[in-house]
């Protein structure tokens, strides 16, 4: 057990290092994009003076390294800075009241909460379905059921997400109006309504992530079916279902857990398209908008959240894999 805590500490330390590298890469990448916030926000009406004023206001005229270090120093103290887009450009308009600046943290927090909520709802639906399907596919391997499950999940993962989303809207919101097609959830909404509103995007995402987890469950179990202890279980006259659930599954957990973690990380970070289709106020949409207008503080914060999600979920998966191994749980 002591070794587990050492692994966690080590990985967290490495995780912090990863975050630092991510922030440098993102900062550099955004700076390499053509145009900056001032030019893009002013669009065609950009006069050199106006651009210069905004740049000065936001500190964009300082050298990039200095700007990065300033951001980093603030971030290390827990201040992720202020969103460019939310600033009121006081000096530009000449109405500086010194207030109304919204920090990145307060801007992202509700969005992030929504994203986690959607990921949670999806996981609650997708993980049990994927594992059950995987077990059944392993049990009836090479049968019609196995092939049908494979074809269905594979075609749903191969179609574009927006297509799956519109198909679901067509069937569940337009032809049979069971679920709302707009998922515009907001603060103060009660939980059941939130849940109903999130259901369509969650189902779309379920279709996207199930195939991966199901196929890994199936493969991990089938991989073990040739092992002597499975043969032993069969020679004890146990039912095929019991052989798989009781004897194969506990030993197949590690790879399954890892795939689940990867898919959860995807749900937190990669669902922009689905958010757009359902007008779901998640973090993905905010992120894309911020990149478009080069709103560096928001981009940085989003990327750090995404990276942290990957790091923490993978760490959790590794720890669970270790715990699922009786050799490590019960040393000699």
């Amino acid at each position: 057990m002591a070794s587990i805590f050492r692994i966690i500490a080590q990985r967290l330390a490495l995780g912090v290092l990863t975050l630092l590298v991510v922030s440098i890469v993102i900062f550099t990448a955004v700076n390499m994009l053509p145009g900056d916030f001032a030019e893009l926000i002013l669009g065609q009406g950009a006069t050199p003076e106006a651009v210069e004023a905004i740049r000065k206001d936001l500190g964009l005229n300082e050298p990039p390294i200095q700007r990065y270090l300033q951001w980093l120093a603030a971030a290390l103290q827990g201040d992720l800075g202020n969103s460019f887009a939310q600033a009121n450009f006081a000096s530009f308009a000449g109405t500086d009241t010194g207030s109304g600046l919204e920090s990145v943290a307060t801007q992202i927090a509700p969005r992030f909460k929504n994203t986690v909520f959607l990921a949670g709802v999806t996981a609650m639906i997708a993980v049990p379905i994927a594992i059950t399907l995987g077990i059944l596919a392993a049990l009836y391997r090479n049968s019609v059921f196995d092939r049908a499950a494979n074809i269905l999940t594979l075609s749903s993962i191969s179609s574009p997400e927006f297509f799956m989303a519109y198909v679901l809207i067509l069937f569940l919101a337009v032809l049979n109006p069971i679920l709302p097609s707009l998922s515009n959830i907001y603060d103060g909404m009660d939980l059941s309504e939130r849940f109903t509103k999130s259901l369509l995007p969650a189902l779309t995402l379920t279709l996207v992530v199930t195939a991966h987890m199901m196929r890994m469950t199936r493969a991990a179990i089938i991989n073990l079916l040739a092992s002597p202890y499975i043969e032993m279980a069969r020679l004890k006259g146990l039912s095929p279902m019991r052989v798989i659930v009781k004897h194969a599954l506990p030993n197949a957990l590690a790879p399954i857990i890892n795939v689940i973690a990867l898919n959860l990380a995807y749900l937190v970070t990669g669902v922009v398209v689905v958010e757009v289709v359902f007008v779901y106020p998640g973090i993905g949409q905010l992120f894309v908008d911020s990149v478009k207008i080069r709103d560096i503080p928001v981009v940085q914060a989003c990327c750090l959240i995404f990276a942290a999600a990957y790091i923490l979920l993978n760490l959790t998966a590794d720890v669970l894999s270790i715990i699922s191994n009786p050799r490590l749980r019960h040393p000699k």
Binding site: Y229, M232, K236, G237, P326
Partner: peptide, 24 residues
């Protein structure tokens, strides 16, 4: 066959270390 296996006919494998399920 399942009714007989384990109950009336049993098997002892070559490698007990590999034939016991490590998880139980």
């Amino acid at each position: 066959k399942r009714g007989l296996l384990g109950k009336r006919i049993a098997y002892v494998a070559q490698s007990a270390a590999a034939s016991f399920n490590p998880a139980h």
